[in-house]
C-alpha cells in the first residue's frame, strides 16, 4: 500500500518535472511546443554522453539546462518568431523541428537504446519499504522546481514582465516591455527545462531517438487541463498520474499508458477550461 502511494507520488513528480517546460512556453507565448519531446530526448542523450565520458552523473542536469536554454534562444529567433501570428503553423514547424532533431540523433547514435548512469544508486527505506532512492529524489526535485518557478514568476523582474505579457500583450508592449525579448527568454527557459527534465528521467528509463514522444503527449494533456498555473499542474499530475499508476497496477500496463490521454480528453470535453478557474 505504501509502495503504491510512493509510486503515485513519484510518478506525479516526474510528470510535473517533464511538463513545466511545455507549460511555461504555452503560458507566455500561447504556443504549443511540439519539439518538447525532442528536447527531452536531447537531455537524455546529454545524460548518456556525460555518463559515457565518465563524469559525475549529476553534471548532466545543469549541462542539459544550459545547452537547452541556448538552443532555445536560437530556435526562437529562427523558427518561432516568424510564426507568432500563425499558432497552428507553429505547432507544425516545431513538430518538424522535432523530426529533424530525432533524425540527427538516429544518425549519430543509431536507433538503439542507450542507458545513462543514475546519480543515486540503491534504495532507501521508507515506512518499512525499500524504495528507489532516485525516484524519491525526483519528488524533491519537483517540489524545488515548483517553488523556484513560482518565485521566478512572482518575485523577479522577468516574472513581472512575463505575467504582463500573459495578461495583455499589446498593453505590456505599450508600457515599454520588450515582449519579443520576454518571448525569446521564455522559449529558452522552456527548452532548458525540457532538456534538464530529459536528463533527469533518463537514468530511470533509457534513451532512444523517439523517447520524448510519449512524454510529449502526456505533458501536453496535463498542461491543457491545468491552464497556466503551477499549482494546478501539480494537482493535475497527481490526479492523472495517480490514475495512471492505479490503472497500470490493477488493470493493465498498456491501458495505463493511455489513461492520462483519455481522462484528460474527457475532462476537457466536460470542462473546457480544465482545472484552471471555474
Amino acid at each position: 500500500m505504501e509502495a503504491l502511494a510512493l509510486d503515485i507520488l513519484t510518478t506525479a513528480a516526474i510528470l510535473f518535472v517533464v511538463s513545466t517546460g511545455l507549460m511555461i512556453i504555452l503560458g507566455v507565448m500561447k504556443l504549443i511546443n511540439f519539439a518538447h519531446g525532442a528536447f527531452l530526448t536531447t537531455g537524455g542523450y546529454i545524460a548518456y554522453l556525460v555518463g559515457a565520458a565518465g563524469l559525475n552523473p549529476w553534471l548532466a542536469v545543469p549541462a542539459a539546462a544550459v545547452l537547452g536554454f541556448l538552443a532555445g534562444l536560437v530556435i526562437e529567433r529562427t523558427i518561432i518568431r516568424p510564426l507568432y501570428h500563425r499558432p497552428l503553423d507553429a505547432i507544425l514547424a516545431t513538430w518538424g523541428l522535432g523530426i529533424v532533431i530525432g533524425q540527427v540523433f538516429a544518425l549519430t547514435f543509431g536507433r538503439g537504446v542507450q542507458f545513462a548512469p543514475s546519480p543515486i544508486l540503491g534504495t532507501i527505506d521508507v515506512f518499512g519499504n525499500e524504495y528507489s532512492g532516485y525516484r524519491l529524489a525526483m519528488l524533491a526535485v519537483a517540489i524545488v522546481l515548483a517553488v523556484a518557478l513560482s518565485a521566478l514568476l512572482s518575485f523577479t523582474r522577468f516574472g513581472l514582465n512575463a505575467r504582463a505579457v500573459i495578461a495583455n500583450e499589446p498593453l505590456a508592449r505599450g508600457l515599454g516591455i520588450d515582449s519579443a525579448n520576454v518571448r525569446s527568454i521564455t522559449f529558452g527557459l522552456g527548452a532548458g527545462l525540457a532538456c534538464a527534465a530529459g536528463a533527469l528521467i533518463t537514468p530511470l528509463l533509457s534513451v532512444d531517438p523517439n523517447m520524448g514522444l510519449p512524454w510529449l503527449v502526456n505533458s501536453f494533456m496535463l498542461v491543457m487541463i491545468s491552464g497556466v498555473s503551477f499549482p494546478s499542474l501539480l494537482v493535475a499530475s497527481l490526479l492523472l498520474g495517480g490514475s495512471q499508476v492505479l490503472v497500470s497496477t490493477y488493470i493493465s500496463p498498456i491501458l495505463g499508458g493511455m489513461t492520462i490521454v483519455v481522462l484528460a480528453a474527457l475532462i476537457l470535453r466536460l470542462k473546457p477550461k480544465g482545472f484552471s478557474r471555474a
Partner: peptide, 11 residues
C-alpha cells in the same frame, strides 16, 4: 532528415 528540414522551411 531532409523531409523534416524541407517541412520546417516550407511552413
Amino acid at each position: 532528415l531532409l523531409t523534416g528540414v524541407a517541412f520546417v522551411l516550407v511552413i
